[in-house]
Nucleic acid binder design. Structure first.
Lengths: 257, 257
DNA sequence: CTGTACTGTTTCGGCATTGCAAACAACGTG
DNA sequence: CACGTTGTTTGCAATGCCGAAACAGTACAG
């Protein structure tokens, strides 16, 4: 029966559907056999699935290539807007972007990763790899560490247990103890840093934000190393970012009343 | 087995999964029984589905309420960016928004409806109902008619056959002949109008854009009736919008070379 | 023009999986 | 304390999925 390792019963076909959609998304455009290979499914089985998903207008098929349909975009945008931080963070991100001329993000935690919910670009903004909707790992980013610092230690442990501490650059923290001691001081300072830990040449400063839905989030400013140096990196930006994070939290708590 | 009205084999569970996700999206937040009622499924069956989708991190469950997860957002954003018009239209929309101070949209056709892919807000922008990712019907909007005008008549017929011509306001075109004659003149003029046909008090001007992927799209400017009047509505905005549409198409064709 | 290889599509039977019924658990409410 | 409601688990029957194999359509080489 459909019982899996989890305590509850699972619907295997539902898992398959999600895997198919994700694979199409990753490959961006793929043929039946490409997908069958990637998913390790028989072509006939996959064909039935794909036909169904096309009929449901989740996928598009041009000629023999499958791509994601915009239905995911429609519902995904709704999920984005439904997040309480989406609207509330807007003005603060814009303010940071204007003030610093760099790029500012609001990142929210979900299932052990950070999701980039909204950005605001300053005039000098450089956008190295993050994009709206992107998922980032929590150990190698300023926003991620600001999120981890808010979580109970056991949850943080579970997350790094699940995703590990993969090394992105030579600065990436790959040792749990180092990470946790940094989180500890982050809790005191109210700020976290990313000093070329995910991408060489890029630095970032973040501050934790407690989302009204009880989840952890963070505001972050990032930019090229040559502009994020000295007191600007260690003093000015932290003040701006943590100021905005505090103001945002204040706004959120007052909105409830 | 598994064969449906369509010629091909369908995976019934895949249909169910899509229906579940869409229902959660519509209800935005719902309990098991609410969803079971809406979907007309037995609670035990639905429970297995929902548990699976939570495990797949497509849904979130807080307490007993289910909501859409941000996974859809992640993949949806990718689908948005993958559309060739997303990047290319940006500058033209911004230019229109700045010039007109109203709100400008790029809308692309998919499965007989228009999807709002990107917007640019001018300083006076009013955003009545459309949101990024929203789907709009094609018969009662300027962008929709600009899209219909590009399609072969039989496809346009099929679309209005599928969705009908529901009356939104007293100005909505509900008669196919009227619609098709308007499309005919739209093809000559290169512009379409929305004169309070979807929302009372709102007008819009749109121009067709042929997407490089072969699909129909449109650029549209909309605003309150009191600002869209006289020559501005009939001359100035049409010139601006069709100019931008032409420039965008030029950009698209030159990008190929 | 024919043979071969590859990909996409359809058909078909066995059996794993799903869906339903029913029972159970955990509330809150009258 | 009995009752209604909702979420969760279990068991059973048969639906509907999976995989093999055949079929169709295309590209390419000889």
């Amino acid at each position: 029966m459909g019982d899996n390792d989890a305590g509850h019963r699972t619907v295997k076909t539902a898992e398959t559907v999600v895997e198919i959609l994700e694979t199409v998304s990753e490959l961006e455009r793929a043929s039946l056999t490409e997908l069958a290979d990637a998913l390790d499914m028989h072509r006939s089985t996959l064909h039935a699935h794909l036909s169904t998903l096309v009929e449901q207008e989740c996928l598009r098929k041009e000629d023999t290539q499958y791509t994601l349909g915009l239905k995911l975009f429609t519902h995904g945008s709704r999920a984005q807007r439904m997040n309480p931080l989406y609207e509330e963070s807007k003005q603060f991100l814009q303010q940071i972007a204007e003030q610093t001329k760099e790029i500012a993000w609001i990142v929210v935690e979900e299932y052990g990763r950070g999701v980039c919910l909204r950005k605001a670009k300053g005039e000098l903004a450089v956008q190295p790899y993050k994009r709206i909707g992107a998922r980032i790992s929590l150990h190698d980013t300023a926003a991620g560490k600001a999120i981890l610092a808010q979580l109970p230690e056991e949850r943080a442990q579970a997350i790094i247990g699940r995703y590990g501490l993969p090394e992105r650059t030579e600065n990436t923290i790959t040792d749990p103890e180092t990470l946790f001691s940094e989180l500890e001081s982050a809790r005191n300072e109210g700020v976290t840093f990313n000093d070329e830990e995910s991408i060489t040449g890029f630095r970032a400063v973040a501050s934790p934000v407690a989302s009204p839905d009880g989840r952890a989030a963070a505001i972050v400013v990032s930019g090229p190393k040559n502009r994020l140096q000295e007191e600007r990196f260690s003093e000015t930006l932290p003040e701006i970012v943590s100021g905005a994070a505090n103001a945002l939290e204040l706004e959120l708590s007052s909105a409830v009343n």
